[in-house]
């Protein structure tokens, strides 16, 4: 029943978001595009840190690699950016294998610093790629984004300018990515593997004693989130149209913000990142006239949440009201049908 309610409200929200581009308002569409992309990154980081216990400070690695491979595909190999983005996601996933071999040898804080160092290595290496502009970066060729499949169709059906059609397409793709991430996370976390993962997070020794293999599960999550993060990175830079190593591998934009979003919203819950991204966007809009003040406020809120409400806004809300949309727990198994049980129940007038 509660599940149905949560599902319904999510469907309504998704449907409302889906029709936004039809009402024009390109600035709003571009804003929401970025919010949706940050949400995808946040859902991914939440899977890593909130469920798999992998506190990575290097997710910008996969954002940057996805974006750069997409640019390479579009500029050097003449593919359209969407195919390029898909290849970007795949390359990010392939790259995550050797990265995992390195960082999985490290624990806790070492893991965090290790991932960060690897991401910085990638940033510096990609700035050596002269064909893609080296350290200063490059722009997508004119018309590359307009040649993406679907753009022509949108232009004909809706009669909009090519740039607006590109915005719409990327926006819907981002929305689709959010929905896919949410559905995939929910199914995965309620599956046998997901339960194992949460068991490892809550008590590694006990989980291993019942046969859960933590390294295999964590590696799987690392691999899959690398893919989704790479896809999202490619999508972001299709919309931006320009790339540079510092922008593509920015630890602030693609990891720090994302961490704050997850923590403020509620780490280790599925709706948490959604709440977090709303708070982030709200702050950004509210304080947009005061330069970087919103970052200071964001940092302070993050600290306060860690000090006083470690489970974040959503975690606190759930605890306080008992309402839990998208619960990850399974219903407890039915009581065994023994005579003794039935007797005690009947005593209580059932």
């Amino acid at each position: 029943m509660k599940n149905a309610l949560g599902l319904l409200s999510l469907l309504v929200i998704v449907a409302a978001l889906a029709v936004v581009p039809l009402f024009g308002l390109r600035a709003l569409v571009q804003d929401l595009f970025m919010v949706l992309c940050l949400l995808v990154l946040a859902l991914n980081w939440n899977m890593l840190a909130g469920f798999a216990g992998l506190v990575s400070v290097g997710q910008q690695l996969f954002v940057g690699v996805g974006a750069y491979v997409m640019f390479a595909a579009a500029i050097l190999w003449g593919l359209d950016p969407l195919t390029g983005g898909l290849i970007g996601g795949l390359v990010a996933m392939v790259l995550s294998v050797p990265v995992a071999f390195f960082v999985f040898r490290l624990n806790g804080a070492y893991f965090a610093i290790g991932t960060w160092a690897v991401a910085d290595i990638a940033r510096l290496s990609f700035s050596q790629w002269q064909a893609l502009g080296g350290g200063t970066g490059t722009a997508l060729p004119r018309g590359a984004a307009r040649d993406m499949p679907g753009v022509q169709l949108l232009r004909e059906v809706l009669g909009v300018s090519p740039a607006a059609a590109v915005d719409m397409l990327t926006y819907w793709l981002a929305l689709g990515l959010v929905v896919a991430m949410l559905v995939a996370s929910w199914i995965f976390l309620r599956s046998r593997m997901g339960l194992g993962l949460q068991a490892v997070r809550d008590n590694p020794v006990a989980a291993r004693s019942v046969g859960v293999d933590p390294v295999r599960l964590k590696a799987l999550v690392f691999l899959l989130t690398a893919f989704a993060t790479g896809l999202c990175g490619a999508l972001i830079f299709i919309q931006t149209g320009r790339i540079s190593p510092d922008a593509a591998f920015s630890v602030i934009d693609w990891t720090a913000f994302v961490i704050f979003i997850v923590v403020i919203g509620g780490i280790g819950t599925l709706p948490g990142p959604i709440i977090g991204v709303l708070v982030f966007y709200g702050l950004q809009r509210l304080l947009s006239d005061y330069g970087t003040v919103y970052l200071i406020v964001l940092g302070v809120i993050g600290i306060v949440v860690m000090l006083f409400a470690r489970r974040g806004l959503w975690g606190g809300f759930t605890q306080w009201t008992g309402v839990n949309l998208l619960p990850l727990e399974h219903a407890p198994p039915k009581r065994p049908d023994t005579g003794i049980r039935r007797n005690t129940r009947s005593v209580h007038g059932e």
């Binding site: 840190a49 506190v55 804080a109 965090a112 602030i252 720090a256 961490i259 704050f260 923590v263 780490i267 970052l295 200071i296 964001l298 940092g299 302070v300 993050g302 600290i303 860690m306 000090l307 470690r310």
Partner: peptide, 13 residues
């Protein structure tokens, strides 16, 4: 995670 995040927040501030 908590000390990591608090010092991260401090860094941004």
């Amino acid at each position: 995670l908590p000390p990591l995040l608090v010092t991260f927040g401090l860094s941004v501030v």
